[in-house]
Design a protein around this nucleic acid. Structure first.
Lengths: 252, 252
DNA sequence: TAAATAGTGTCTGTGAGACAGTATTGG
DNA sequence: CCAATACTGTCTCACAGACACTATTTA
């Protein structure tokens, strides 16, 4: 926020009237998104195959330049891009980091603000399948793909944020559609955490945090074994912060 | 990272040759710093009084535009600015958040990447006093000051980050000069956390984490009461992450 | 000696991990 | 009945909070 003009005796109004951003060399500024969901019991991330230069044909995170005519905030840009790609209007969105350098994009000095989003994938929603250029890629595959620019590093940073926050928040609630069973919720936590959890500890933790509300059993649900109770999250349950970290298996 | 040119049959080299960032309206991009230290037993933050438009004469966070001729990364920009203001070369620097909107700067759509830095203030170092336009402001005062742009909100976000990380890391090690006593270290934690800590719990936690190394007593240190043992942090001790949160006083 | 500061012993409380046990469904 | 899944009882362990106690210094 320091200035670039010499300190003359002009007024602030004069200064602003003369100010022209095209006089300066500015970095390119984009927003990129790591959109995660749980599908077929796997963590999946939404990737796009770039159809224009640079890095044409390569897989990349969805995103785009900030449109200063249209966007009212960086988060608005992120939510707009996410809506375009997934149709989801009220996702969980969290800013992960911002990176910038002269090297990361061949067009010049560029900055990108990385957001992570979590959405629940409902098989009945057709919007996600309908997207032409975006595809859900299982995490194991996405890790192998050579992504455009520095997107592999960005994706890894988002994955790490997701994993670490799963250990002390209730974030995984965002990748499930209600109603769900406690076993399903535990599997969601385990998948995002990439570690097994002890059943009793998990249930006790959820119980004592009071994040869930019981929902009447659905006679539709079939399945082997004893039917499970169904729950939905209370409002803002996904934002809950625990005071201890999960998944620290006892060492011998 | 999506493109703005129609997808013609040109090569990537052609595309890049024709690409001119001055064809686009780009946001202004700056880096701002919330630099904290512990001085006279108080948390203090480094602020500058702006000597040019806009917001001339108002207090603000130190920072400045990204210089795409000079800077090799955003963090490099932050470290350069910090070095200019404080003379400290190897500080603790952490990215806090990035915010952008058309409203936050009268010059137009602007983005700022906010960093938090922690430095140990040594009374013998003269560099900090030597800075003309920057001043250490006690946190209580800084909170009252009407800062330029959205810097009050930025400062608050950095303060919250500092507070929350103090509860589960050893960050406060960065605001002390070694050697220090355990009592001094506890006071640093308490100040950054803004909550009292229980002496035995604190010492046990430090002891068990093995973050500190004993240092020979300094005959210089006078003072009332029993002389305290002196310690210095082991390397990377400030990055230690605890698995439980401090300062959750028991409720009745 | 007292005052001041440093440092310890030890009890309690919370909540996670381990793991065996019981409950309820369908075939 | 058995297999499969859901759910519970209960022990142990790690570690924070509370707080009284001892230790070592100067005045």
């Amino acid at each position: 926020m320091t200035d670039r003009t010499p300190d003359t005796q002009q007024s602030e109004a004069d200064y602003l009237a003369q100010y022209n951003i095209h006089d300066y060399d500015l970095p390119l500024t984009s927003v990129d998104l790591a959109i995660f969901t749980l599908l077929h019991g796997e963590l999946q991330v939404l990737l796009v195959e770039r159809d224009s230069f640079p890095a044409r044909g390569q897989w990349a995170l969805p995103g785009g330049f900030v449109d200063i005519q249209q966007d009212l905030s960086l988060e608005a840009t992120a939510i707009r891009k996410l809506q375009e790609k997934t149709g989801v209007a009220t996702p969980y969105v969290e800013q992960v980091l911002t990176t910038g350098s002269p090297e990361r994009d061949p067009r010049g000095w560029s900055i990108t603000v990385l957001y992570m989003a979590l959405i629940a994938h409902a098989p009945t929603q057709s919007h996600v399948q309908g997207i032409r250029d975006a595809r859900w890629i299982p995490w194991a595959e996405a890790q192998q793909l050579p992504l455009a620019f520095d997107h592999s590093a960005l994706l890894m940073a988002a994955r790490e944020r997701l994993q670490s926050k799963t250990a002390y928040t209730a974030l995984p609630l965002h990748v499930l559609n209600a109603p769900f069973t406690l076993s399903e919720l535990q599997r969601a936590f385990e998948t995002l955490l990439d570690a097994p959890l002890e059943k009793k500890s998990f249930r006790r933790r959820m119980e004592e945090a009071g994040l869930l509300e019981a929902v009447d059993a659905d006679p539709q649900r079939s399945g082997k074994g004893r039917p499970a109770a169904l729950f939905k999250p209370k409002t803002a349950a996904g934002d809950f912060v625990f005071s201890r970290i999960l998944g620290q298996t006892r060492e011998g």
